[in-house]
C-alpha cells in the first residue's frame, strides 16, 4: 500500500512536471520515465499483458519517435519557448477551477462505485474452453472480440497512409544518416536477432501466458527502429509491392477469415475445433503487419522505391 501510494504520487508529480517544464527535451525524457512507471503500475494491477505492451511501445518506440520528431523541428524556433504572453492570468485560473470541479466529480463517482463488480470476467472464464487458447486476454482479443482487433489494425494502416500522404507533398530527400560506428553496429548485430527471437517467443507464449500479437509486433517494430537508427534503409527492390504486401497481410488475413465465417455462421465466430490453430495463424499475420506498420510510422516517410517515383 505504501508502495502504491508512492508510485501514485510519483506518477502525478511526473505528469505535472512533464507538462509544465520549459525545456521540451526534458519533457520527453520525463514522458519516457512516466511510461516506465506505468509499466510497474500495470504489474501491480495484475495486468502483465498490458505491462508487456507498455514496455514494448513505451521503451522501444515512443521515446525514439518523440526524439526524432524534436530533431526535425526547425532550430531557429527555440524548443520550449512560450508564446502565450498575451494570456491573461484569469484564463488558467478559471480552467484550473473548472477542471478541479470535473475531477472531484469523477473522483466522487469512482468512490461511490460498488466495491465488487465482476464485469465480464465470469463470461470470459466460462467460454475460455471454446476459444482455443488458455490466455484469457488473447481469447478476448482474437476470438471473442475479434472485430475490435481487425478494426484496430486498419486504424494503424490509416495512420501510416496519413503520414505518407503528408510527406508526399514536399519532395525533400530522406535525411542522410551518418554511418554507424563499430560499437553501435555490434550492438545491432546482437540485439536485432534477439529481438526477433523474443517476438516469436511472445507470439507463441501468448496462447497460454501473457504475450500475443500486439506485444510481439511492437518488439519486431523496435528491431526495425534500431536498424533504421543504425543507418540501414529498406532496399529499393523491397520498398514497392513487397512492403505493401507486408503492410496489408494482417488485415487481409482477418478479412478473409471474417468472410469465411460469414458463410458458415456469424462474423468472426471461430469454429471451436480449429480455433487454436486459426488464432495462431491470424496472430502471425497480425504480428508481421503490426511490426512493419509501426516501424514505417517511425521512419515517417515513404521509402525510396526503384524508379524513384516516391
Amino acid at each position: 500500500m505504501l508502495f502504491d501510494a508512492l508510485l501514485g504520487l510519483l506518477l502525478l508529480g511526473l505528469a505535472w512536471l512533464l507538462l509544465s517544464c520549459r525545456d521540451l527535451f526534458k519533457a520527453i525524457v520525463l514522458f519516457v520515465a512516466f511510461g516506465l512507471l506505468m509499466a510497474i503500475v500495470w504489474v501491480r494491477l495484475d495486468a502483465p499483458d498490458v505491462a508487456l505492451a507498455e514496455v514494448a511501445i513505451g521503451a522501444g518506440l515512443t521515446g525514439a519517435l518523440l526524439m526524432s520528431a524534436l530533431a526535425k523541428l526547425p532550430v531557429d524556433n527555440p524548443p520550449g519557448r512560450y508564446s502565450n504572453e498575451k494570456t491573461h492570468w484569469l484564463l488558467p485560473l478559471t480552467l484550473a477551477l473548472m477542471l478541479l470541479l470535473v475531477a472531484s466529480g469523477l473522483g466522487y463517482a469512482l468512490w461511490s462505485l460498488p466495491v465488487i463488480a465482476p464485469g465480464l470476467s465470469g463470461e470470459v472464464a466460462a467460454n475460455l474452453e471454446q476459444s482455443g487458447v488458455s490466455n484469457p486476454v488473447t481469447a478476448v482479443l482474437l476470438n471473442f472480440r475479434g472485430y475490435d482487433t481487425l478494426l484496430e489494425i486498419v486504424v494503424l494502416l490509416l495512420a501510416l497512409l496519413g503520414v505518407w500522404s503528408l510527406n508526399s507533398l514536399d519532395a525533400t530527400p530522406a535525411t542522410a544518416e551518418k554511418p554507424a560506428n563499430l560499437v553501435l553496429d555490434t550492438l545491432m548485430r546482437l540485439l536485432v536477432p534477439l529481438l526477433i527471437l523474443v517476438a516469436a517467443y511472445l507470439l507463441w507464449a501468448g496462447a497460454n501466458s501473457p504475450g500475443g500479437a500486439f506485444q510481439a509486433g511492437a518488439v519486431l517494430a523496435a528491431a526495425g527502429v534500431l536498424l533504421l537508427l543504425a543507418g540501414w534503409r529498406l532496399p529499393t527492390a523491397l520498398a514497392g509491392l513487397p512492403l505493401r504486401l507486408a503492410l496489408v497481410a494482417g488485415p487481409v488475413a482477418f478479412i478473409t477469415l471474417a468472410a469465411l465465417t460469414l458463410l458458415n455462421a456469424r462474423l468472426l465466430e471461430l469454429p471451436v475445433e480449429h480455433a487454436g490453430m486459426l488464432i495462431l495463424l491470424l496472430e502471425t499475420f497480425a504480428m508481421f503487419s503490426i511490426g512493419v506498420t509501426l516501424a514505417a510510422l517511425f521512419l515517417g516517410q515513404r521509402p525510396q522505391e526503384r524508379g524513384g517515383s516516391a
Binding site: 494491477l45 495484475d46 495486468a47 499483458d49 498490458v50 505492451a53 507498455e54 511501445i57 518506440l61 515512443t62 519517435l65 465482476p118 464485469g119 465480464l120 470476467s121 470470459v124 472464464a125 484469457p136 486476454v137 478476448v140 482479443l141 471473442f144 472480440r145 475490435d148 482487433t149 484496430e152 486504424v155 494503424l156 495512420a159 501510416l160 496519413g162 503520414v163 500475443g212 500486439f214 506485444q215 509486433g217 511492437a218 503490426i290 506498420t293 509501426l294 510510422l297 517511425f298 515517417g300
Partner: peptide, 23 residues
C-alpha cells in the same frame, strides 16, 4: 483474477495511441 476484457481493450488502445501520436 481481474476482469480481462478491459485489459485487452487497453492493449489495443496503447498501440492505437502510438500510431495516432506518430501521425
Amino acid at each position: 483474477l481481474p476482469d480481462l476484457v478491459p485489459q485487452a481493450m487497453v492493449i489495443t488502445g496503447i498501440v492505437v495511441a502510438f500510431s495516432a501520436t506518430a501521425l
